[in-house]
Amino acid sequence: MWSVRFSLVALASAAAFAQQGYSPADIQSGKQLYGVNCSNCHGPNGDFVSGVDLGHGSFHRASTDNELVAIMVQGIMGTPMPPANLSDQQAYQIVAYLRSLAAAETPGANKADLAHGKSLFESKGCLNCHRVRDHGSRVGPDLTSIGARRKAADIQRSIVDPNAEVLPENRYVRVVTRDGATITGRILNEDTYSLQLIDSKEKLVSLQKADLRQFEFLKNSPMPSFRDKLSGDELSDLAGYLVSLKGL
């Protein structure tokens, strides 16, 4: 009985949201709520659960915003999807965020010239820091499966504005040891007393913080912006190629 009454209430309430526009504030709030309530299972881009991809505006069990809100607050019986502790308003904000992800999919990405994108990737120095399968450097993030984890819009943004979002696992550190040696690298792990990184020579390095004179996270991504170095078509082709990298 509880669930029936609740679902009626939820549906009635959610009806007020139907087919309204999404404000930037709702989208931003929804992004935060998604990170707290959903990303543990669904992943940062909504595609961690096999067969479910929340980021492309296509849902197996729902088509309207109201149905999505109902699923979030009620869960799905017989599946691992639990009822979330969200108000209808909060659930609606998550819907707004998910809709915005789909809307941000780059129109024309499917038309990208992947061969040209691959050629750009190899000629523009990307492999000096990045790796795809067994080519390139491990100093920067491995991009072998970037297309399965990031959307074209995110990738384009990272190419033209690398500092817009640097994921925690992609941060760089610079340390100076007690004997004056400077080591820069991408952090892999950290605890109270030590840190582990991969340095600019692709060596796995483990350091005790007590042995360091300086230890700082670089504020900005070491990746340069390609804003003025790629035409619009080139950017589209490069992003299209990267989106095509779905892993092995």
Binding site: G125, N128, C129, V139, Y172, T184, N220
Partner: peptide, 11 residues
């Protein structure tokens, strides 16, 4: 830029 240049150079 300098940081990146260093990294690139090292790589």
């Amino acid at each position: 830029r300098p940081t990146f240049a260093l990294l690139l150079a090292a790589a």
